[in-house]
């Protein structure tokens, strides 16, 4: 009985550290923080166009957003084989993609660089994949040094 209880508690702790994000933020060596910015274009009195990226307050179709993830290695050891996957939310269309990044245009079933992907249209016509076709993005980093942080971003247009 006693042994059983101990075993149960241990199993629970393992499960919590792996699954609960709150726990992960403090306990995990890797921190991931997502953010979103809205493009705000203003024209100053001299007619010069200025672009600012602001906290989205009012967003309508056609607006440009940047979705980003900041990662930080909080541990004392390097993190290896670091892969970040980001499904592209519905209702947005990827505006631009780093040609080196792996993407999927079929919901994550197959992955390749955008330039190597082909779309087969409903009428059977084949064409090169475009950023707007991207359904998933995957960044692969060989290693993150202790204390190192960086940002992974992709610009989108609200459909």
């Amino acid at each position: 009985m006693n042994n059983c209880t101990k075993f149960g508690l241990a199993a629970l702790l393992v499960a919590a550290s792996a699954a609960a994000p709150v726990q992960a933020e403090t306990a995990a060596p890797l921190e991931l923080v997502g953010y979103v910015k809205l493009e705000k274009v203003t024209t100053d009195p001299s007619g010069e166009r200025r672009v600012e990226w602001v906290e989205p307050q009012v967003v309508v179709p056609g607006d440009k957003l940047i979705f980003g993830t900041q990662f930080t290695n909080r541990s004392q050891a390097p993190i290896e084989s670091f892969v970040v996957s980001n499904p592209v939310p519905p209702s947005v269309s990827v505006a631009q993609i780093d040609p080196a990044v792996l993407v999927s245009v079929d919901g994550g079933k197959t992955w390749a660089k955008l330039a190597d992907l082909v779309i087969v249209e409903a009428d059977g016509q084949r064409r090169a994949a475009l950023p707007g076709d991207v359904t998933n993005i995957r960044w692969v980093l060989p290693a993150i040094a202790p204390g190192e942080s960086g940002r992974l971003e992709f610009p989108v247009t609200v459909r």
Binding site: L65, I79, P87, I144
Partner: peptide
């Protein structure tokens, strides 16, 4: 509401 979440895997 448009929601975005990233997921990372790494070798530990």
């Amino acid at each position: 509401v448009i929601e975005n979440t990233a997921e990372a895997t790494y070798d530990d």
